[in-house]
Amino acid sequence: MSPSPRVVRTEPITTGTVEAYRGTFAASDPVLDAGDVLPAGWEGVFFPFAVPLADLRPDGTPARDGVVPEIDLPRRMYAGETTEFLRPIRIGDEVTQTTRLGSVTEKSGSRGRLTFVDIEREYAVAGEVAVRGVWHDVFLEAAGPDAPQRAPQPQPSVAAEADWVEEISLDARQLFRFSALTFNTHLIHYDRAWAREVEGLPDLLVHGPLTRILLMDAARRHADGRLPTHLDVRAIAPILVDRPLRVVGGRATADGLRVTALDADDVVLATADITFSDR
């Protein structure tokens, strides 16, 4: 069996990129300087997509990135991510990211063919792995404005039983900035005509990787200084621009914490299960 394709890249963790994210999405956090610990999850704004324009699919996602094979389904969506935090990354560190192809699974569902692809990433400092993650993507058949939509299923008990709630509303300026930071050219995040007419959504979609970091940020603010060791994010329903979003959670325990993104109607849009350590 031939080894999985991989791509290795190295770049520094710079204050400029950290401040660009903080100033846009975490303004209540303190300004960070060289030597400070990078908040868990923020490694996701480094190592932006590096694919020439000619190697993009029509939807703006990578077709040929040296890792994921070309897949003959027109739509590509983020389905979630699993991350292990093994040791801190500090601002100023030189980090090496190794990206490999994980499992590729084809299925058939109510909306036709699907292909699930796992992308494995490691972030190492001085040869020691600091963060290890698996990004889950799904490729789908074509959709459109008349595509059948799943009926929303409100779960009011999630907010009612929460210990804390944070309210967020993401606008098009923030989506643009995250696309710019990560060099994410998926049209679904900035082209309303594409989002509505091709993807069958009411409006622009908030980036799944951004949702992952926002959920981790909220958990961190309520973790009493405990450090995360494991993060498992699941994208369940579209999070749309300019819509009220509530991030709710409970008190972190020895078993961890679940953070949930809810819309104004108590529909669960995404979940993050996080475990912590006292180290």
Rank of each mutant, 00 (worst) to 15 (best):
D65G: 03
E19Q: 15
Q97D: 01
V51K: 05
T98H: 01
W42Q: 10
T105N: 08
F85S: 03
P39K: 07
S103I: 12
T14M: 01
G66N: 00
Y21F: 15
F49Q: 12
W42V: 06
R90P: 06
V37S: 05
L86D: 07
P5Y: 13
A20I: 11
E81S: 06
D29C: 05
R100E: 15
A79H: 00
T96Y: 04
S28K: 11
G23M: 04
L56F: 07
A50C: 11
A54W: 06
P48K: 06
T99Q: 11
E94C: 01
P69A: 00
S103K: 15
V18P: 12
R6D: 09
R9F: 02
E19P: 02
D59P: 10
A54I: 10
I13H: 07
L86Y: 07
F49L: 14
P39A: 10
A50P: 01
T10H: 08
T83F: 02
T10I: 08
S4Y: 11
P12H: 05
E43Q: 15
G60F: 05
V67S: 00
E11C: 09
D55V: 03
E19M: 11
L32M: 10
V8N: 08
A79V: 07
R76H: 05
P30Q: 02
S4K: 13
V51Y: 01
T10A: 14
G60Y: 09
I13A: 05
R22F: 08
P58F: 06
M77P: 12
I71Q: 00
E11D: 15
P74D: 07
V51H: 01
I89E: 00
D55Q: 15
T99M: 09
I71Y: 05
P69T: 07
A40Q: 14
P5T: 03
F47H: 04
P39T: 05
P3H: 09
P62H: 07
V104Y: 02
R57A: 15
T96P: 06
E84P: 02
T98W: 01
F85T: 02
S4V: 14
V51E: 09
D33I: 06
G41V: 03
P5H: 10
W42G: 10
T15F: 12
A20Q: 13
E84R: 13
T61A: 15
E81Q: 14
G60M: 10
L73P: 02
R57H: 11
T24E: 15
W42T: 10
E70S: 08
L38M: 05
P12G: 12
F47Y: 12
E70R: 01
S2D: 15
R9H: 09
E43I: 04
T14V: 14
M77A: 06
R90D: 00
G35S: 04
T83G: 00
R90S: 03
P52E: 06
T105Q: 14
G23Q: 03
S103G: 14
R9V: 13
S2Y: 12
E70H: 07
P30H: 00
S4R: 13
D29T: 06
G80K: 01
V37T: 14
K107Y: 05
D59G: 05
F85D: 09
A40L: 03
D29G: 08
T83M: 07
